[in-house]
């Protein structure tokens, strides 16, 4: 078993994100973001955030990303920050579009803008769901009648306080996430081979914007953690030259090395995140090695203090333990 905490975003240093959201006359929207999709599904998450703010569906949002000529500044796909920081910027930019729509719709619905909400593709009078206009009609009206095409931009930077250089006291991060993973292992005490059979992972990410993608992050993080715990190591010769710079001799997990994984998402809501979301990218790997190493300890009573816990290391530790306890009946 191992639990952990992990922060979202850079340590104190400004790490802003900007976003631009524009809506076309049919009520579909485009998000411009300078972040880069590196596999996490961050663009999908951002589309869901914009859609949620505008009361439309994920598929109604197109995301344009990663071109410095076309997209606004973003600190990028690093430090588990995209959902929280870029997500906040995207939500705020979408909110500006929404407020423009409210301004247009309010006189048509005979209410004040603040009495409106956007949901299910409609601009709706709060508390009076039957009094509504389709968002496409409002967006079209904004463009062709009032001449105010809905567009919004916003920036977000997590609130931090610099650390005192003497004591390290301060507020380095906007928020943190928490998690626990528990491993079940099978240790062959004649060879030291460790097989990870099962991992249970209970993760906090604030509101899961897309639970399926959260699961994917956790499963992938665990695979990287299994490698970190048991297999992977860059090795150097005495001259400082790598001796295993290839995937033949740098051992990382294959599908046959992976345990069964059960992902559990802890209910949580962070008021500073977009719709309560925080993030999940990096933390998924953080407790894995510790959980596996503690499971090895529980299984065969040896504490491996240096990673990776190769079969040889585990075997040698088991041997050393037996030699230290000669009266123990060996298997």
């Amino acid at each position: 078993m191992a639990c952990m905490w992990y922060p979202i975003g850079f340590t104190v240093a400004a790490n802003p994100s900007s976003a631009v959201v524009k809506m076309d006359e049919d009520g579909t929207a485009t998000l411009l973001t300078g972040t880069v999709e590196t596999g996490q599904g961050s663009l999908t998450i951002l589309a869901q955030i914009v859609a949620q703010e505008l009361g439309i569906a994920t598929d109604d949002v197109v995301v344009v990303s990663a071109d410095t000529d076309a997209t606004p500044m973003d600190t990028g796909a690093i430090a588990s920050r995209t959902t929280y920081v870029t997500g906040n910027a995207a939500r705020m930019a979408a909110e500006k579009v929404k407020l423009m729509l409210f301004d247009v719709a309010a006189p048509m619905l005979g209410v004040k803008p603040h009495q409106l909400e956007a949901k299910d593709h409609k601009i709706v009078v709060k508390g009076y769901p039957q009094r509504n206009m389709h968002i496409a009609d409002v967006a079209n009206h904004a463009r062709v009648v009032t001449g105010e095409p809905p567009i919004g931009s916003a920036s977000f930077n997590p609130a931090t306080v610099a650390l005192d250089p003497e004591t390290g006291q301060g507020k380095p991060f906007g928020t943190y996430v928490y998690a626990t993973q528990i491993a079940e292992v099978d240790v062959d005490d004649e060879t030291g081979e460790v097989e990870v059979i099962r991992m249970v992972a209970s993760h906090d990410c604030g509101t899961p914007i897309n639970p399926m993608l959260v699961e994917g992050q956790v499963e992938g993080g665990i695979s990287m953690g299994v490698g970190f715990a048991l297999q992977e190591e860059i090795l150097f010769n005495a001259q400082g030259v790598q001796i295993n710079p290839n995937l033949t001799n740098y051992i990382m997990p294959t599908s046959l090395d992976m345990p069964e994984i059960e992902v559990d998402i802890v209910d949580n809501y962070d008021p500073t995140g977009p719709f309560g979301a925080k993030g999940v990218g990096e933390p998924t790997l953080v407790p894995t090695a510790a959980a596996i190493l503690n499971a090895i300890y529980n299984a065969v009573g040896v504490r491996i203090t240096s990673l990776p816990a190769t079969a040889e290391k585990v075997f040698n530790a088991i041997q050393a333990k037996r030699e230290a306890e000669p009266k123990q009946i060996t298997a």
Binding site: G216, E219, I222, M224, S255
Partner: peptide, 20 residues
């Protein structure tokens, strides 16, 4: 059998779970 069939396809992102 699926794990065996994917044994020659390294993936660093997914842990292979959702592929299976």
């Amino acid at each position: 059998q699926i794990r065996d069939a994917l044994g020659g396809n390294l993936c660093r992102c997914t842990g292979y779970v959702k592929m299976i």
